[in-house]
């Protein structure tokens, strides 16, 4: 089981490393969206500090969603997805490996770039720390839930727009608590623990159910 998981994970990472630009586009999209907001709403320190957490999270939602479209699409087009469905391995395990690779390539960079973005919004060190932890817990949930939508819209015309219509509403709980945690850190660090606990609970729930739902969706889409 573990061997198969590793095999698919490494395969996807290798493929991404041979197409490095795809990974970088997501990251730069995130940076650009976050950098544009101060130009739109004004660069006043206090406004930015209030807006910061929300903006970073919304940008993270959009960035992870943009990348989702490619999660299964390439494998679908060259027939490797079909072969995966037909192997003697549980499909949800293969899907989980693909989602993990996807998160390592699109979610993790956002977590790592967060301090830089936090500085743009004059966030305190505490807030930046909480933001990184919240992103670390929240972005995998985004990839997991998004995978269901990516599987459902596989190979459709205008799948990207449709995907955002289907998936963005489902991201709301992560957005609310992810941004809430950062805001709460400005008042009292102890207040942030329930937020992080909830995000962790979402992650566990998503890890359990999302791969099953995605693999069911893939089977429907491949027929």
């Amino acid at each position: 089981m573990l061997r198969v998981f590793w095999c698919v994970l490494l395969r996807d990472l290798t493929l991404a490393l041979r197409r490095r630009t795809d990974v970088l586009t997501t990251l730069f999209f995130f940076i650009i969206v976050v950098s544009l907001f101060p130009l739109g709403v004004g660069t006043e320190r206090q406004i930015l500090q209030i807006l910061g957490p929300g903006v970073v999270w919304v940008a993270a939602l959009l960035a992870s969603m943009l990348a989702l479209e490619r999660l299964f699409a390439a494998d679908y087009e060259d027939g490797t997805l079909e072969q995966m469905v037909l192997t003697a391995q549980p499909l949800s395990l293969l899907v989980l490996a693909k989602i993990t690779a996807h998160w390592l390539l699109t979610g993790l960079p956002l977590v790592l770039i967060a301090p830089l973005v936090g500085m743009q919004y004059h966030l305190s060190d505490d807030a930046i720390l909480i933001m990184m932890v919240a992103l670390l817990l929240g972005t995998p949930v985004l990839s997991l839930i998004g995978a269901i939508g990516a599987a459902l819209t596989l190979g459709l015309r205008g799948g990207g727009i449709l995907l955002s219509l289907l998936i963005l509403p489902l991201y709301i709980p992560v957005l609310v608590y992810g941004a809430g945690a950062v805001t709460a850190s400005g008042i009292d660090m102890a207040d942030t623990r329930p937020y992080l606990a909830l995000l962790g609970a979402f992650l566990v729930a998503a890890l359990t159910f999302a791969p099953l739902a995605s693999s069911a969706a893939l089977k429907i889409s491949i027929e």
Binding site: T14, D78, G79, T80, L94
Partner: peptide, 21 residues
């Protein structure tokens, strides 16, 4: 469809296929 990844070498493709089997 061939079911092989264009960005992987032949041997890598076969390795993945064998592991998945």
């Amino acid at each position: 469809l061939n079911g092989i990844k264009a960005d992987l070498t032949g041997i890598e493709n076969l390795r993945v296929a064998a592991t998945l089997d």
